[in-house]
Nucleic acid binder design. Structure first.
Lengths: 156, 156
DNA sequence: TCGGGATATTTGCAAATGCATTTAATTCTG
DNA sequence: CAGAATTAAATGCATTTGCAAATATCCCGA
């Protein structure tokens, strides 16, 4: 079946269980929900957790960039960062060359908090991929990367 | 690399762009955000849209089942259904054999609303998969189905 | 069959979220 | 180079969300 045909199919004809966005939302819903208890214990919400995750890997991004990475609205992210800062997990710093912009840095305490959470995230991922051969996992991630390139609206 | 090794890697060592949950959250975040404008125009939120989508395919599920299908909390779903009912898009019906339980049915108006939204959803999916060969898409969906089987906690 | 525990859904309430607006600073254009 | 248009981030506000508790019903074992 080619693209032109596929786009005219109804959901009922495809079937929920064959519609990729449905499957992905459902899988991520479970992954995120499973993490929520651990996050709550650390005083984190999803936006706060995502910010820490990205900041543990990306050094001092602008808030606007962090918003893209985390897929969190700028206003929501701004408040999440307020809270993270109040807990000493991140630090804001006005950008040297553009004083409208703010860069965000993770602190040692922030890193430690994320290190506590990470094993649960890794376990969640491992559970998702249980019984799926390495080659298939790699192909899957490769397809995800192509998909992200297709839909992202920023060059980040 | 085998499972035992992989689970001990740090996020920084894997890289955000190779961590499947990150990629999936980001892709679905965009897919959902792109749909939000169309949904708002129809007076729908994400839970309401998901409920209509599932109800267009599954006949008269219990609210509890709908909650699993849509990955929406029961309390949130209950209120979403209130609103859908107020707009005449769904109908509640006490289950014949268990008077605690409620079955939900989509109305003709609900179907019509979903039919209006569906082309945008299909377009979003098409955009995600742009340039990805059919065989790769099928393999991808096959992996998603295995993953859902791995993480779901219900037999739905 | 009676009562305790489980289950399905709804509701109260505080917290989180998204949109629109505001503030401040930069860049573009004539 | 002045002023308009754009951009980054923060804030006001109404809505949405999730957890916990309430309500109603069902099921199981003594």
């Amino acid at each position: 079946m080619n693209d032109e045909t596929a786009i005219h199919l109804r959901l009922g004809e495809i079937g929920l269980g064959n519609y990729a966005p449905y499957l992905m939302n459902r899988i991520m819903g479970r992954y995120n929900a499973a993490l929520r208890a651990e996050m709550a214990e650390l005083g984190l919400t999803t936006p706060k957790m995502r910010a820490l995750a990205v900041l543990s890997v990306v050094e001092g991004p602008l808030i606007r960039e962090l918003s893209v990475y985390t897929v969190v609205e700028a206003s929501t992210l701004s408040r999440a960062l307020d809270q993270l800062r109040a807990d000493g997990l991140v630090r804001r710093e006005v950008d040297a060359s553009d004083s409208r912009a703010v860069r965000v840095f993770i602190s040692d305490a922030g890193r430690a908090t994320f290190e506590t959470l990470w094993p649960h995230m890794a376990a969640g991922q491992a559970r998702m991929f249980r019984g799926i051969p390495e080659a298939e996992r790699q192909a899957f991630v490769g397809t995800l990367q192509k998909m992200l390139a297709n839909i992202r609206r920023h060059d980040i």
